[in-house]
């Protein structure tokens, strides 16, 4: 017991010492751990070469909305890296932690990388799924995480809606299609990772809707030979925005470091690391040849803005509630 106590005290001491050195906390969503495991050491090295300063980057991962909530409630994250701008907007709307125009502070609307929503089917594509229309054929079971709680699920939903409207269909048609689609969803997991487990481990459903980078992770983890990715003719592009949290960096005195950290996402090296993790780089063409060409639309293009989409479709009593609860 004394040993445990001593080592416990030691860690507390050490962690308080390392607080004196430059330290950043990055609050991110669930599936970026592998990316930041590569990215953080690269940035640390770059920063050391440039300034001689040693920095420590701590990571916090969780469901994206939960992470945003934690930052609002006082999780002292210097930077927040999400998969929807709406999860960063709330920091401005609910707590005034960042200015409302945060997206204009970095290149490409503060979006260094993105990933389209694609389909993952079982080997050989036994149900012959090629495009969105095939998802609503009789006998096809679809796995999508809950759009109320999961960013991944929101993108799948908006992808289906936008597929109809971007091809000239009106809102009534889109609503019919999405209603039909969710009739084919038997399990609504709360998050993207839960949906993957349902599809891959419990072998439920014929097709999983998820991000392209997640598809590659699944193939790595569960075996290349078990699944195939299917690229629909038109799909939604999930943009991964980043922002520094002004209130936190000003208090901790880490503004310069936080900004450099985020800017590094847009550098050639940062973009190459993103490409390595199958996140499509947005400001350089690093690794582009490896990516399949795909026609995409952004949420902004199809729905005006994330806040509008959120309000119309996912708020309490919104369209998703109306079609799914019925």
């Amino acid at each position: 017991m004394p040993f445990v106590l001593r080592s416990a005290l030691l860690t507390m001491l050490l962690s308080s010492v390392s607080l004196q050195a430059a330290e950043l906390l990055n609050a991110s969503y669930d599936v970026t751990r592998e990316f930041y495991k590569d990215f953080n050491p690269a940035f640390t090295q770059y920063w050391k070469d440039k300034t001689g300063e040693t920095v420590t980057i701590n990571q916090s991962h969780g469901g994206s909305s939960k992470q945003a909530r934690a930052v609002i409630d006082g999780l002292e994250a210097d930077v927040i890296t999400m998969n929807r701008s709406a999860d960063i907007d709330v920091l401005a709307q609910k707590a005034k932690l960042i200015p409302a125009n945060w997206q204009t502070r970095l290149p490409n609307n503060s979006v260094p990388s993105a990933s389209p929503t694609v389909f993952l089917v079982r080997k050989g594509n036994p149900k012959h799924i090629k495009d969105w229309d095939d998802l609503v054929r009789p006998g096809v079971a679809v796995v999508i995480p809950n759009p109320k709680t999961s960013g991944n699920g929101k993108y799948s939903y908006l992808g289906a809606w936008g597929y109809v409207t971007q091809k000239g269909g009106d809102a009534t048609k889109a609503r019919q299609f999405v209603t039909e689609l969710f009739k084919h969803v038997s399990v609504l997991d709360t998050g993207g990772r839960g949906a993957t487990t349902t599809f891959a481990q419990r072998e439920i459903g014929d097709v999983l809707l998820t991000f392209e980078n997640e598809v590659h992770l699944i193939q790595q983890e569960f075996g290349d030979d078990k699944y195939e990715a299917v690229y629909p003719s038109l799909t939604v592009l999930a943009e991964n925005p980043v922002a520094w949290v002004d209130k936190v960096v000003d208090k901790k005195g880490t503004r310069k470091l936080a900004q450099a950290y985020l800017e590094y996402h847009f550098s050639a090296q940062g973009q190459a690391i993103a490409a390595k993790h199958y996140l499509r780089p947005q400001v350089t063409d690093a690794g582009q040849p490896a990516f399949k060409k795909v026609n995409t639309f952004t949420v902004k293009q199809a729905f005006g803005s994330w806040s509008d989409a959120e309000q119309t479709h996912f708020s309490d009593g919104g369209i998703f509630d109306q079609i799914y609860l019925k």
Binding site: L25, N58, H61, R193, T196
Partner: peptide, 19 residues
Amino acid sequence: IRGLTNTMPLHVEILYNEY
């Protein structure tokens, strides 16, 4: 926060979610 505020049960969940 990894290495700072994760307890064992939380660590289990995170590892599980990371496949």
